[in-house]
Computed example of a mutant assay.
Amino acid sequence: MEEKSAVASLAALAQPVRLRVFRALVGAGTEGMNPGALAVLLDVAPSTLSFHLKELTHSGLVLQERDGRNLIYRAALEQMNDLMDYLAAHCCLGAGCDELSAAKNCRTC
């Protein structure tokens, strides 16, 4: 992942409603959710939700698919994993996490 993509992803998540939406979609797994179900689950107005889904989609963290007359939103798990890998690339000052987790020095391991 390039730095520009990481910044865009982190910026999209740096808002409480968008973070809640993304976490709900991660929880929904590959089935995803339609906007109506998301709005009810998160108690967010449909127009507000639409704005936040657009921002998450533009960041690449959320995928949108049309299913007949419905839109289905899913977390882009590959993008999420790429972001996590990018953030952890220099974990533990470059030492192997196996070594440090045994010593209990690495909080991410």
Rank of each mutant, 00 (worst) to 15 (best):
M1Y: 10
E3W: 08
K4I: 11
A6V: 08
A8H: 07
A8P: 00
S9R: 09
S9V: 02
L10M: 10
A12C: 06
A12G: 11
A14Q: 06
Q15C: 03
V17N: 03
V17G: 00
V17F: 04
V17S: 09
L19G: 09
L19M: 09
R20F: 03
R20P: 00
V21A: 05
V21F: 09
R23H: 04
A24N: 02
A24S: 12
A24H: 03
L25Y: 08
L25I: 14
G27C: 01
G27L: 06
G27A: 11
G27R: 15
A28I: 14
G29V: 05
G29Y: 03
G29K: 09
G29C: 03
T30I: 08
T30S: 12
G32L: 06
G36T: 13
G36Y: 06
A39Y: 01
V40M: 07
L41Q: 09
L42A: 03
T48P: 01
L49A: 05
S50G: 07
K54D: 10
K54L: 12
E55H: 04
L56V: 14
H58M: 12
H58K: 15
S59N: 01
G60T: 06
L61F: 03
V62E: 06
V62T: 13
V62Y: 07
L63N: 07
Q64L: 08
E65T: 13
G68D: 05
N70T: 07
L71K: 14
L71N: 12
Y73Q: 06
R74E: 02
R74I: 06
R74K: 15
A75R: 13
A76E: 10
Q79S: 13
M80P: 00
D82K: 15
L83K: 08
L83F: 03
L83A: 08
L83I: 05
M84A: 12
Y86K: 05
H90G: 11
H90I: 10
L93W: 15
G94T: 01
A95G: 03
D98M: 08
D98T: 09
S101H: 07
A102I: 14
A102W: 12
N105L: 15
C109W: 05
